[in-house]
Amino acid sequence: MIEGDRELSAMVQELWDNDVNRLQPGKDYRISLQGKAGNNMAINDNSDGAGYPLFSFVDENIFKKETFLAFISLLDNYESDTGKPEIVTPEEEAENHKFLDAIVQTAAMKRAHKYLVEKHLSPQDETQFKKQLYRIWFELYARRGSSRPDSSGFEHVFVGETRGGRTVIGFHNWIQLYLQEKLGHIDYKGYSVDANSPQPDENRHILALQFSWKKGIKTKGSIFMGVSPEFEFALYTLCFLTSPNERVKVQFSFYDVEIVCHHHNQKHIGTTYPVLLRYQNQE
């Protein structure tokens, strides 16, 4: 592992250790992985590896916590179809700012901010830092194939989008997945593994899944399970600002992970998600 990755790994470990709102698998939430998903892209694929929902239980008391509450309020603010321009109302803009206000007060985000200031990548002033976060995550831009602003980093990563009505893009957040499944909008198809993937574990926090949503299919969506919004927000912001390589390998807790983080015009997050390489200390 190169030195920069080692330093970033230590930083991510700190974020992990500071994620006091993380849910505990098997206690605060339970999932049922069932079978391996098929490789077929069709929505009516007969090789569905799961006859039951992914989530069998989530302690929704966690959703009353400030950052969860503020995060969930943002999930209904977007047009899922790429190509349809986004219109941000004053109420939605206020919700974005309320979320950032809550996030920057958390231990994880404070630690990330301190590190970014030390690296001269973020302003020390909290108001200016929030402006930087707003630009990275919430400023609208035109995604591929669109001439008008129809997307943002936040929408793509945390809410999910559809392209051409048949393909789900983005959508890398467990809270959105749980809430959409609860509403009956998600059909979980099974877990995704390839020759290089470790066998998934219901008691670990990183999974690759296949599911359908809004008549589209997500053939392989990699997701942190049970973590808080502030952990993901801090981690992805850190990777976006520190790594021009768009892929960075980090080690923390039980995981060797590659964080994919594509930039859009060097100003915004195009997409970002974890790819589990292996469980540490596992024979």
Rank of each mutant, 00 (worst) to 15 (best):
P123G: 03
G164L: 11
H205V: 06
K110A: 14
R166A: 06
I175Q: 01
L140P: 13
Q176R: 09
N203R: 13
R166S: 12
T162C: 14
F224G: 08
I217W: 01
S151A: 15
P198G: 08
S152D: 10
K189M: 07
A142D: 11
P198S: 06
Q128C: 12
A208L: 02
G170P: 08
Y191M: 01
S222Q: 13
K214Y: 06
V227E: 10
F154A: 11
G170N: 09
V157L: 14
L133P: 12
V168E: 09
D150M: 05
K215D: 15
K218T: 00
M225Q: 11
Y188F: 05
L177N: 04
N196Q: 13
G160E: 06
E126L: 15
N196L: 06
K114Y: 12
F224E: 04
F138P: 14
V117R: 01
A142Q: 11
F129H: 07
G216C: 07
W137F: 10
R135T: 13
N173L: 00
V193Y: 04
E126Q: 12
L133W: 02
K218R: 04
L207H: 00
A208T: 04
T167C: 11
K131V: 02
N173M: 00
E181T: 02
S192N: 08
G160L: 04
Y191P: 14
E181G: 11
Q210H: 03
S151P: 12
V193R: 07
P149T: 02
Y115A: 10
K182C: 02
A195G: 04
L207W: 04
G160K: 00
Y188N: 03
K119N: 05
E118P: 13
R144M: 12
F211R: 01
P123D: 05
M225W: 04
Q132A: 10
K214M: 13
T162S: 15
L209Y: 05
I136M: 12
L207N: 00
L116T: 01
A142G: 06
W174H: 09
D150T: 05
F171M: 03
T127W: 01
S147N: 13
Y191N: 09
G165H: 03
Q210P: 13
N196A: 11
F154D: 14
V227C: 15
Q132V: 08
A142S: 14
K218Q: 13
R166K: 08
L133K: 00
T127L: 09
D194Q: 07
G165C: 08
E161Y: 05
L209A: 03
E161C: 09
S147G: 06
E126C: 13
H205F: 10
K182T: 02
D150F: 05
I217S: 03
H185E: 15
K189E: 10
Q180H: 07
L116R: 00
E139V: 09
A208W: 02
W137A: 00
L179I: 08
L121E: 03
L179D: 07
A112Y: 01
K189N: 06
Y115R: 05
F158G: 00
R144C: 10
I169Y: 00
E118T: 00
Q210G: 14
Q124L: 12
P198F: 01
Y141K: 04
V168T: 03
I206N: 01
S192Y: 05
R111L: 10
R135W: 06
E181W: 02
F138K: 02
E118W: 00
